[in-house]
């Protein structure tokens, strides 16, 4: 018998099974530890509710319809913030890549956006634009705007000059150059900006809601805290995490599809 055969540690299917099982065990262990701490740790439920209590609260919030309503509000804010931030960032990033003067004009704002966390502007925006969803869209939009703008600009700057010359020697119109060259060439960097933005937009909306809101998951967190309903705080937090993960996953899927040509064989 070939002795080396014994030592092949993981075949491909076994690796795949491991990739599913290990995270599952990780989550299970976390839940068990949490349950143990809640049960025998001597902590009251308004400090640390057990997973079972949180689960029950989740079902109740779902049945009342309040969870769906607040999730809908936050999701709406996140998506609108994402769309507006991405559109504005992409358009301005494109123009700044084409016109040096615009880039120089934007430079102070870009530098400031690195120095000040945008979320610190949330209270101001809520003061100006009220407790409704508009101020949240604005926070989310702003927070997404900068990474998308910077990545759009960087991506377009990285379009290889010889390819631009090739297109011009073929008498390609500016639109053809945009569609056939600039967009695909800038896409990898743009999408990593979008990925960053997708997660940030959730943070933006929630911080806006925490500052002052009349609906949404951030509002629910504040509500639960005020009523010592800590299980509700957990429910809202987990729902938020799920939302952020879903968004991130969606962009990741987009990346996988659009950038298949990049994958190492």
């Amino acid at each position: 018998m070939d002795i080396t055969q014994k030592w092949i540690p993981f075949s491909a299917p076994r690796l795949r099974a491991r990739a599913v099982l290990m995270p599952f065990f990780g989550v299970l262990l976390f839940l068990l530890g949490w349950q143990a701490l809640a049960q025998w740790g001597g902590l009251p439920a308004f400090i640390l509710p057990s997973p079972a209590q949180v689960g029950a609260r989740f079902v109740r919030a779902l049945a009342e319809g309040s969870l769906a309503r607040h999730t809908g509000i936050t999701l709406g804010e996140v998506l609108l913030g994402l769309v507006s931030g991405v559109s504005a960032g992409t358009i301005l990033g494109y123009l700044a890549a084409k016109h040096k003067a615009l880039e120089e004009f934007l430079a102070p704002a870009l530098a400031a956006s690195q120095a000040i966390p945008i979320v610190a502007l949330a209270p101001l925006l809520v003061i100006w634009f009220g407790a409704g969803i508009f101020s949240k869209i604005l926070v989310g939009g702003l927070i997404v705007f900068f990474p998308v703008l910077v990545n759009t600009m960087t991506g377009l700057r990285a379009v290889p000059r010889p390819l631009t010359e090739l297109m011009r020697s073929l008498r390609a119109s500016p639109w053809q150059i945009l569609w056939h060259l600039e967009i695909p060439a800038a896409l990898p960097v743009f999408l990593s900006g979008l990925k960053m933005g997708a997660t940030l937009s959730v943070i933006g909306a929630v911080v806006g809601e925490l500052v002052g809101a009349n609906g949404g998951l951030g509002f629910l967190i504040n509500l639960g805290r005020g009523q010592f309903d800590t299980a509700l705080v957990f429910v809202a937090t987990f729902t938020l995490a799920g939302m952020a993960l879903l968004l991130y996953g969606a962009v990741h899927l987009l990346e996988k599809t659009l950038l298949a040509w990049q994958e190492k064989a």
Binding site: P162, L163, E165, L166, H180, A185, W261, Q262
Partner: peptide, 16 residues
Amino acid sequence: NPRIGFVFQQSNLMPW
């Protein structure tokens, strides 16, 4: 508008 065929030192193919 003469049609031009241009080949450079690098192949300049579009990787996608």
